[in-house]
Amino acid sequence: MNLSAGFKPLAMILPGLALAVLIIGYPIYDLGYASLHEVSRFGQFRGLNGLTNFRDVFQDPLFYGSLIRTVIWTFAVVGGTLALSLPIAMMLNEEFYGRGLARVIIMLPWSISLTMTAVVWRWALNGRAGLFNATLMDLGILKEPIEWLGEAHQAFTVEILIGILVSIPFTTTIFLGGLSALPQDSYEAAAVDGATRWDQFRHITLPLMKPFINIAVVLNVIYVFNSLPIIWVMTEGGPANGTDILVTYLYKLAFRFGQLGKASAISLIMFGVLMVFTIIYVLLVMRGEAGADAEE
């Protein structure tokens, strides 16, 4: 069914659209403009310099390192989050003693800002003044304190784990919403047919949860790809640029080194990467949905 079309729907989306175009559209235009110009140390536009900024970026070895780490970071955090959130959501969806409390605890990281989470973890992970090592040593798990953030690979791993931890609440909420909307009768029918729980999961839960998983993937990829606070607060991309991802590298270029033209170029490249990802994802995975969409 469609209520009378015409100008009414357009009028309804217009105010919001106007705000979005203004607040997000204009800066994008500004970014594009800056990327093609020579920009002074303090952001004043000098002359047009064509693709020089982009050439600078592609000649910079640190850019490629950051690009690779961004891909690892995004895949590891999003993958880890999904792999943990689905079973968690399935457990939280079942009745058990203390479920309310468990739900509250799992959601808790959401209530602190990312920046503060990172600050607290940095303080706790400190090799000798931090409570993390002290606790592990009290429990006899560690003999010697470990410098968690002293070496790039290890620091990056720690940061990925924390990234997963803070992404779980949002993802679990989406999944829980999906799970509680699943029709119970298909499970009952499957149980009558003698299907094991694993069969149920594979043949009923997973397919029905697909739209939820898809949206969780797209949104998480976008958020994680662009996420600055965890890495910035804990290591500032160091040691020796070993934990730099594109966002942190861009932040340094723009606000420490004052290379605003080059930073604008990287921003646009990042935008392009995300867009290509989303388009591919939508084409490959969300196709069925797109069909449903057209029927509306």
Partner: peptide, 15 residues
């Protein structure tokens, strides 16, 4: 949703 506020900060500020 794809533009991180950090990326847009300069343009936003100018605006």
């Amino acid at each position: 949703q794809m533009m991180s506020p950090i990326v847009l900060v300069l343009g936003l500020f100018r605006m």
